[in-house]
Design a protein around this nucleic acid. Structure first.
Length: 632
DNA sequence: GGGTGTACATCTCAGATACA
DNA sequence: TGTATCTGAGATGTACACCC
């Protein structure tokens, strides 16, 4: 490593082969864990579709052929690269005759594109065309409290119209803002608080679930993003970092969990922590994976627990029959979610918080519900996680039976709307430790969720007949050891935490498997991401592994940049550019270079301006750094 | 046949600007 | 003041064409 010690290690383990909950370590936090991953209110942002020739599937297929093609060109593999490219082109058109968006330019054109694609693969960095966005999910700010308030005033608009009469258009905003400020100031502070709470609710309502594709992209870019951030922080603080992470695998969110260890040290040739620590494997890595295992498992259970409650289009929850495999914690989770949903329904109009304030409910039960709604053996409702086990079962069965016996839409249990003094604002409320804080489900998302679950169920019912044997083999491994190589984990031996089984079990057990990927280079998408982080890029120093592939493109970019700044100004007529562009298509050697944007800008400038305007300093493409990380 | 240079399209990001 | 839209800069993939 040239200037700094940087290392990213990525490995995975299968939840189906997790260590049992009562592991020999016995020192990890027992299930259920406190809420460590609060739901992030988010809003989707527009996604643009990349215009590339091949579909994703085709690109993947082609990418798999690059190593052999390049191997032949470099004489590492016997045979000619061109022959291989043409051979693969023939196979390609045998598989597909349509490209992206259903375009079918003809067999010969497709063949030529395949050959050219493989040829370009030698010089291009590879991967996807589009840069990976930063790990950022924009959040809508939503309406402000004072805005909501004045919108509710019937006379506000008329007053606004009266005040703006005779004023220039530009004054409209200030008039509106002034009037809003006046009305807001007139409002008592208690009422202001109510409107602030309503604005908070409105903001939340604007934010839906994170789109899966954004999650996937963010997860994919995470190692690079973290590495870049750590690198920058290291430069700016002199600190060294060793970071352990766990989370879903971007390739398969329901499959093996992914564990990352990221080390960044500003010193040259610093030893890696894993080699420095005398018992890294046993003392650090294994301990972390044991712990992280349960973090991920709990996270998935919290995600999936809502799948164990039927919620209709009105948001009314219905409990499913008890499953023998559920643990007490599982049942407590489900009941907590169930009550939170009931609470949400009861308080929807007056909502100032979305989950039950269990502490207050315990101290003032009469303000929250009718005691007669509970089974006679249960004196009071407390948090299911604090409930004795016999009460937990009793309550669950009671609620479940009430559902079955009552065909009407009446709920077996209903919360009262507490007075505002009892019902604190969410800002002042602290989540109770160990309590499931999954947000209640908004009716608007229920239809979508249920459709997804239904589809999943139908698929999985079908799969269960075909894969039952495989699954059984893995889960009943007698000696407790995973015999399959980690890299060969297939869908049949992965435990799907969601709805893979018509009678799903939340519990999952097993042992650790470590998946190593040997000498894997960084996907270009992640390189792009890091390049997008310009501050980091400027201070980064490449490690090894970047020379061969990067040099060709860097030279090209540099050459291109010089040409743009030196020659683009010559052309100040866009029409000429177009003509020359057309001419270029038939005859190579055209000397005007640069993007259309650059040309258009230059064309818009006068010749005098272009003569005296110094081109803006750019990051030289030659200096563009390639940042590779290595995987253990 | 393989390597290389180039134009162009298109992406992300950040800052500027317009608007209510 | 908050939000939406526009714009410029930088980066990268694709297609084409020429050179060795």
């Amino acid at each position: 490593m040239s200037a700094t010690t940087r290392k990213v290690v990525e490995f995975q383990w299968d939840l189906a082969v997790l260590p049992p909950q009562r592991s020999h370590h016995g020192d990890y936090v027992p299930f259920p864990l406190p809420l460590l991953f609060p739901s992030h209110p988010i809003q989707s942002f527009p996604l643009k579709i990349m215009k590339t020739c091949f579909t994703k599937e085709q690109e993947i297929w082609l990418r798999e052929r690059i190593p052999e093609y390049l191997g032949r060109i470099d004489h590492i593999i016997e045979g000619k690269g061109q022959d291989y490219a043409e051979e693969q082109a023939n196979i390609f058109v045998g598989k597909w005759t349509e490209l992206r968006d259903g375009k079918s330019p003809g067999i010969d054109v497709i063949k030529a594109k395949v050959v050219r694609w493989l040829k370009n693969s030698r010089t291009k960095v590879g991967g996807t065309k589009a840069a990976v966005p930063l790990l950022k999910i924009p959040e809508s700010r939503g309406p402000t409290a004072n805005q909501l308030y004045v919108e509710s005033l019937e006379d506000f608009d008329s007053e606004y119209q009266r005040r703006r009469e005779g004023l220039p258009t530009k004054a409209n905003v200030s008039v509106w803002n002034q009037l809003r400020a006046e009305r807001w100031q007139e409002l008592p502070s208690q009422d202001q608080k109510i409107w602030k709470d309503r604005a908070e609710v409105a903001r939340r309502e604007l934010r839906g679930p994170v789109p899966e594709d954004i999650l996937s992209r963010n997860r994919h870019a995470l190692p690079t993003s973290l590495q870049t951030v750590l690198s920058s922080y290291s430069k700016q603080t002199g600190y060294s970092f060793f970071l352990l992470c766990v989370g879903p695998n971007p390739q398969d969110p329901d499959g093996p969990a992914r564990v990352l260890t990221i080390q960044h040290c500003g010193l040259e040739s610093a030893p890696e922590f894993s080699s420095f620590h005398p018992a890294y494997e046993e003392g650090v890595k294994n301990v972390w994976t044991q712990y992280a295992c349960h973090l991920e498992e709990t996270r998935r259970q919290r995600e999936s627990v809502t799948d164990f409650i039927d919620i209709n289009a009105d948001g009314i929850p219905k409990l499913k029959p008890l499953c023998r495999e559920w643990t007490f914690a599982n049942i407590a989770d489900i009941l907590t979610t169930y009550f939170d949903q009931l609470w949400y329904i009861a308080n929807e109009k007056e909502i100032s918080q979305r989950t039950i304030p269990w502490e207050q409910l315990t101290t003032q039960p009469e303000s929250f519900y009718e005691v007669t709604d509970l089974p006679s053996a249960i004196p009071a409702l407390i948090s299911p996680h604090k409930m004795p086990h016999w009460q937990l079962f009793l309550l669950y069965e009671h609620l479940q039976k009430c559902q079955q016996s009552d065909s009407s839409a009446t709920l077996p249990f209903a919360f009262k709307v507490p007075s505002p003094s009892i019902n604190p604002s969410p800002k002042n409320r602290m989540p109770e430790p160990g309590v499931n804080c999954i947000s209640p489900i908004r009716p608007s998302v229920i239809a979508q969720k249920k459709a997804k679950i239904t589809l999943s169920l139908e698929d999985d019912r079908h799969q269960d007949y075909t894969e039952e044997g495989d699954r059984a083999i893995v889960e009943t491994d007698s000696d407790g050891e995973e015999e399959l190589p980690a890299s060969s984990v297939s869908p049949s031996n992965e435990l799907n935490m969601e709805m893979n089984n018509p009678t799903p079990s939340i519990s999952s057990v097993s042992k650790l498997t470590d998946l190593h990927t040997e000498n894997q280079v960084e996907p270009v998408a992640e390189v792009n991401l890091r390049r997008s982080l310009r501050h980091a890029k400027d201070t980064e120093t490449p490690t090894v592994g970047d020379i061969s592939m990067a040099s060709a493109n860097s030279r090209k970019r540099k050459a291109n940049q010089v040409d743009v700044t030196a020659e683009a100004n010559i052309n100040d007529n866009e029409n000429d550019i177009t003509e020359e562009h057309q001419a270029k298509k038939s005859k190579r050697g055209h000397k005007v270079k640069g993007s259309t944007q650059v040309k258009a800008k230059k064309a818009a400038q006068t010749s005098a301006e272009t003569a005296i305007t110094a081109p803006k300093a750019r990051n030289s493409a030659h200096n563009a750094q390639r940042y590779w990380y290595y995987v253990e």
